[in-house]
């Protein structure tokens, strides 16, 4: 059975999700920040975390975006093979982003040409990742991504012999290089395997996972936990002013890879790790 879905339904959902993502963080991230504000031992660090908690409250209560960089709209869609759309999917997504950024008083941060750099003034186009899946549902995740932290992300094409140590060093290196520039405390999304572009997409996807849950693969869950501890010992701290809270979460996603390679992407995100998911 083919299910007919109207593109306007998709646009409307994306519009609302862009706004929602920019005004309130998911519970897992919020709880981590609140907990850190309580347990942090650094003096400036504790003050900053307290400000972040207050900031989240103001954002939610007064509909002021959590951060002024309301991001480039990254949209993941899993579309059931039995869905038929009545128009262009790309147009529908961009229409949703356009309306969300306009009606939600969100910042328009996209330039048309990367070298000529004229603002498109409506935050389009979105960055759209679509996959076809069995079924007749549409799962949409909207993840507006700020570029202070995006700029500090890295891809490492490691050798198989580099192994687990190499992966851990890559994550540590990326976080250290990001330091104060990526608005710590950070959330770290890691993609291991696939190829050059696949590991980067996995890393971004990893950021949309609940940071309080570990990978289902035991050896990956162990690395996530180890890195969380190690990164919080770097002493970078909130805002880069020192402290125990450098990262809120480390999420790792994997994919099979080639016998000759070990690609690792580290997508750095700040504490404003925004994502909203809906199923239509």
């Amino acid at each position: 059975m083919i299910r007919e879905v109207s593109c306007s339904l998709i646009s409307k959902a994306i519009e609302e999700m862009c706004i929602e993502a920019n005004l309130s963080l998911t519970d897992d991230v919020r709880e981590k920040i609140v907990l850190a504000a309580d347990t942090e031992t650094g003096v400036i660090a504790k003050k900053i975390l307290g400000q972040l908690v207050e900031n989240m409250e103001i954002a939610k209560n007064e509909a002021i975006p959590i951060c002024q960089d309301t991001g480039m709209a990254v949209v993941f869609m899993e579309i059931g093979q039995d869905v038929h759309l009545d128009g262009s999917l790309t147009d529908a997504v961009n229409e949703g982003v356009r309306n969300g950024y306009e009606h939600g008083y969100l910042r328009k941060s996209v330039v048309e040409d990367p070298l000529i750099r004229v603002n498109t003034k409506d935050n389009t186009p979105a960055i759209l990742h679509v996959s076809l899946v069995p079924g007749d549902k549409i799962k949409i995740t909207v993840a507006p991504k700020g570029f202070g932290s995006e700029n500090m992300s890295r891809v490492y094409m490691l050798k198989p012999a580099d192994g687990e140590e190499g992966v851990k060093n890559a994550i540590l290196d990326a976080v250290k290089q990001a330091g104060p520039n990526a608005c710590p405390p950070m959330t770290v999304g890691v993609g291991i395997g696939g190829d050059f572009e696949m590991c980067a997409i996995l890393a971004k996807k990893a950021l949309t996972r609940d940071i309080s849950k570990r990978s289902e693969k035991p050896h990956i869950a162990r690395i996530e936990e180890e890195m969380l501890e190690k990164l919080n010992k770097t002493g970078i701290g909130p805002g880069g002013f020192g402290g125990d809270t450098t990262v809120l979460g480390v999420n790792i996603e994997t994919y099979p890879t080639h016998i000759a390679g070990l690609p690792v992407a580290v997508n750095i995100c700040c504490h404003v790790n925004r994502h909203v998911t809906r199923v239509l």
Binding site: I48, Q51, L52, E54, N55, M56, I58, A59, E62, I64, P65, I66, C67, Q68, D69, G148, P180, C183, P238, G239, G240, F241, C270, H271, V272
Partner: peptide
């Protein structure tokens, strides 16, 4: 000076 990154709602006040 640094202001706190990601605290734009608070700083706007």
């Amino acid at each position: 000076f640094a202001a706190v990154g990601g605290a734009g709602a608070l700083l706007s006040k």
